[in-house]
């Protein structure tokens, strides 16, 4: 008797628990999980997305098309995205950490400077793209200054290699502010006593950074690298504003291929296969980084 009550009680409270999670589960499942399921299904079909026309099952054809890349349009996009993710993450974190070291003490001047470093993040990426387009375009502010000074203009957006470098630069300009805040928070957690002790032992600035500050920042570094790579893998808005993928296909990212090329040309099957691959790559990259960083973080606990 007592036992059944307990079971019933457990069951009921389990149900009550389930209901507490229901709203979140419904919204998340309905509009994230189900679409991912749809994406996986459509990725195995040829489908133009028009409701009155049915998808045809084509097996792995879309994936084969992406991997074989018969017309060489997707590999450049993968390359561009990789450059943005790797170089961009490196620069974003380098800039953020470097400036965080400069601004770690809370003074009125530093508070002002922190806000100045952060502000591009409250402008949307699309607006950032348009703004820099107007500054660096062939007839933009910088080139007009050069021309008026009798210099030759610079192909910031007109040359494929320059355009990619410009794009990465603009992304770094707009994004490092968030990582800066995270690093500043991480630096607050570094024990001042430990740094002081290291100094008393005769360590100089760089040595203190290398042996005390850097290991203690390890968990922050993991978070900032993973978040910046995740956001850099899906760069789209800023491309739209800055170069619209050009010149040629020099700045077409993977997300641009999905939204502005495949989907815009009614190739929903291919677009979904590309999206599925991106999700898989993002997941693999994130977990690899987290796994690789685990050792560094264990070191952090030892130091902290």
């Amino acid at each position: 008797m007592a036992r059944t009550t307990t079971t019933r009680r457990g069951l009921l409270s389990g149900l009550a628990n389930g209901l507490m999670t229901l709203p979140a589960a419904v919204v998340y499942t309905g509009l994230t999980v189900v679409p991912v399921g749809y994406a996986v299904y459509y990725s195995f079909t040829q489908y133009n997305g028009i409701p009155s026309q049915a998808p045809t099952w084509v097996g792995w054809e879309n994936y084969a098309r992406i991997i074989a890349d018969p017309i060489g349009d997707l590999r450049p996009a993968a390359w561009v995205t990789l450059v943005i993710a790797v170089v961009g993450a490196f620069l974003v974190n380098g800039a953020a950490l470097g400036i965080a070291m400069l601004l770690r003490r809370t003074t009125a001047f530093n508070t002002f400077a922190r806000a100045v470093m952060f502000y591009p993040h409250v402008l949307s990426a699309l607006i950032v793209g348009f703004l820099w387009q107007a500054i660096l375009g062939p007839q933009g502010a910088v080139n007009n200054l050069l021309e008026n000074a009798g210099q030759s203009t610079l192909p910031f957006l007109a040359d494929p290699d320059w355009a990619l470098v410009t794009l990465v630069g603009v992304i770094v300009w707009a994004q490092f502010g968030v990582q800066l805040v995270l690093y500043l928070a991480g630096l607050q957690a570094v024990s001042p006593e430990l740094q002081e002790a290291a100094r008393l032992d005769g360590a100089n600035g760089p040595q203190v950074f290398r042996h005390v500050t850097w290991p203690a920042l390890a968990p922050t570094v993991t978070v900032t690298i993973v978040t910046s790579i995740l956001s850099l893998l899906k760069v789209y808005d800023v491309v739209l504003g800055l170069t619209n993928g050009g010149p040629g296909d020099a700045t077409q990212t993977w997300a641009y291929e999905i939204l502005a090329v495949s989907f815009a040309n009614n190739k929903v099957g291919l677009a979904c296969a590309q999206a599925v691959l991106l999700v898989v790559v993002a997941g693999i990259l994130s977990f690899t980084i987290i796994a690789l960083r685990r050792r560094a973080e264990e070191g952090a606990e030892a130091v902290g």
């Binding site: 009921l12 009550a16 419904v26 919204v27």
Partner: peptide, 21 residues
């Protein structure tokens, strides 16, 4: 017991779903 449960369950669902509804 079950009334309490029902009340709580309803509360949970209604509260959580309000914005959605």
């Amino acid at each position: 017991m079950s009334t309490t449960f029902l009340r709580r369950a309803r509360g949970a669902v209604v509260l959580g779903m309000t914005p959605v509804l």
